[in-house]
Design a protein around this nucleic acid. Structure first.
Lengths: 347, 347
DNA sequence: GATCGTTGTGAAAACGCTTGCAAACGCGAG
DNA sequence: CTCGCGTTTGCAAGCGTTTTCACAACGATC
């Protein structure tokens, strides 16, 4: 088949050890020797077999990216960010989905990353406390994205603040009946993102002196379809909302479609705001809270690589909070005249 | 660290060879022995180290997926389809992007998949004839997606037919000035998809007895942003189009936004049709030509695995054509009264 | 009762690289 | 001319599996 290190050694009249050192830029190789080896290697189109070099070298040069589901916008972007940084350092990225057959339970039972990765990025904590401990005992460095666990490095946006920003924008416009389209109905506490955003929603409501009406909070499953269903539910309410805060742009877009089909004008009759700044958000005019997903992927990958490089120096935890920012477009406006908020309680 | 095969062998009082055979379900292992080995392995939480087993076994158990750019909707979906099938068979998927630093040239020069993969999925042929030959000489089985090369297995949708379907839908509605938003302006013949769709566009025009106006054909770069720019260009035309066929939904959505901003009503003043059936297409009411991207990913992966399994049996080429289908939603309608096509030439 | 297949098992040789260790080499100092 | 020291190089021992081959044990066959 293709050339092995021995072929190169023979052709360059040196030992395989020297070839290995020369090609990897290690010190203590005479410049002339190195030049000759490199020339021969190029000639023979030699590249080291990663299976062998990783075995011998003791590292795996793979990091795992644990996500609920590949192929969704957010995770696809994340992957590409992680991949970009990992590749530069010679690492491969192994996507590990927890939504496949067996789901999270199977993942925790099998720990499919064992003997395969040097570290793990855990995106959007999908594990409960106990499961997390099991994963942690898997023995590889962990970095979390979107949640914070003491003793584990991590990175997240401040979802409470992001939601506050979104809902604050709406209350600032004068809205009083603001719906929330959130996560999965009976999620057993795992996925902190919708929880945090719900909290920010409540805080912003309170800050504006508004009551929180449980009827206005509906699950949307973080998909356009779920957003559409959620909007349907909201439209059956006796007193429908004048504004909707969706916890993702995809849900927002799903919701908008249902509203428009029902003859509701956006933003005249109904304001809609999302979170993410999806690639298409600008092109549907969606007001949203922007977060830099690719940037998060790059950063979290770098964090993990740093963490891996630390051979047990007891250092302080790293936990970064990345910024979000309001991007006003064309789906939010003041509520219709008849339904403005009577200012008073809050002021 | 964690248990090796030798630990298991010792604990089960057999040789490592027997452990290997027992755990992989090979024949010629006494049932009692196998049971004991399995029990011990479970107890010790042993799993084989893929680096070692792949080295010794002679396979790599990795397939490469060569795409222009990870993170775009189409390729993200494709990846998830490929990954799903590959995983089942124990293969990892190595994404190889040709849009990174150096682009296609660097890819062809370095052949970064050497010694790393057992086979390659080439999505949307990004190579010219010469480059393709270089890649082919890389020595691994190839399967193409979206293009067809004699002697190479492949899979594609009939892009000519898909475009004909789209444009035929528009001519059927009575449109005569139909614009095409296509690929990259000066793409050196590599990416056949826009070429084929352009051909289908022309065919459908001809079939309706319509002239082809070169001014109506603009590049859109397969992004929403490109679609927006394209629409801008179209709006400067003396006689603007009554319909737009965009070669991807993302471009269609970008174009629609620009049109609406210009006060053009869709579909009353302008019809828009895309291709893909993007996750969000339904929710922006976009009429489109649907293709099953995940399904294509699954199928092309299977094709590659089959191809890899064939140890040189000279078999016929496999080249599948996957179907597309028109999905009419709310962005296409008859052209405005004043601008209907004078029927005559075609009938 | 000797012969021949079967099965089940272990020893050891790959697989292609990295790395610790020691030997060889060169060169200026004494 | 010899010694000492730093640099360059090769040898060989891994890394953790798979796989080939030989061999023992055991019935079944003539």
């Amino acid at each position: 088949m293709s050339a092995t290190i021995e072929d190169v050694a023979r052709a360059a009249r040196v030992s395989v050890a020297t070839v290995s050192r020369a090609l990897r830029g290690l010190p203590n190789v005479a410049p002339s020797t190195r030049a000759r080896v490199v020339a021969v290697a190029t000639e023979l189109e030699y590249v080291a077999d990663p299976r062998a070099s990783r075995l011998a070298g003791g590292r795996r040069m793979v990091i795992g990216l644990v996500v609920p589901m590949l192929g969704q916008w957010y995770y696809a972007k994340l992957f590409s960010g992680v991949e970009a940084v990992a590749t530069i350092s010679g690492y491969d990225v192994l996507p590990l989905s927890t939504s496949g057959p067996g789901g999270v339970e199977r993942f925790v039972e099998q720990l499919p990353f064992r003997k395969r990765v040097d570290g793990l990025v855990l995106a959007d904590a999908q594990f409960d406390e106990e499961q997390f401990q099991v994963v942690k005992r898997g023995g590889v460095p962990l970095v979390t994205l979107g949640s914070h666990t003491p003793g584990v490095w991590g990175l997240a946006v401040d979802n409470v603040a992001a939601a506050r920003l979104a809902v604050g924008h709406l209350t600032g416009l004068g809205h009083a009946r603001i719906a929330l389209i959130g996560g999965i109905e009976d999620d057993p506490f795992r996925f902190s993102v919708p929880v945090d955003r719900f909290e920010g929603y409540q805080e912003a409501l309170a800050a504006a002196g508004l009551e929180h009406d449980p009827d206005l909070v509906v699950p949307g499953n973080f998909s356009a379809e779920g957003g559409a269903e959620a909007m349907h539910a909201l439209l059956t309410l006796r007193e429908s909302p004048t504004a909707v805060f969706a916890c993702s742009d995809e849900m927002a877009i799903g919701a908008m479609q249902v509203a428009r089909d029902a003859g509701i004008r956006i933003p005249e009759d109904l304001s809609v705001i999302g979170i993410d700044d999806h690639d298409l958000a600008a092109y549907v005019g969606l007001t949203t809270i922007r977060q830099d997903v690719i940037g998060q992927g790059e950063r979290v990958a770098q964090l993990l690589l740093d963490r891996i490089a630390q051979t047990e120096g007891v250092t302080a935890d790293v936990h970064e909070v990345h910024p979000t920012r309001l991007v006003v477009r064309r789906t939010t406006a003041a509520p219709p005249p008849g339904r403005r908020r009577e200012r008073g309680v809050a002021d």
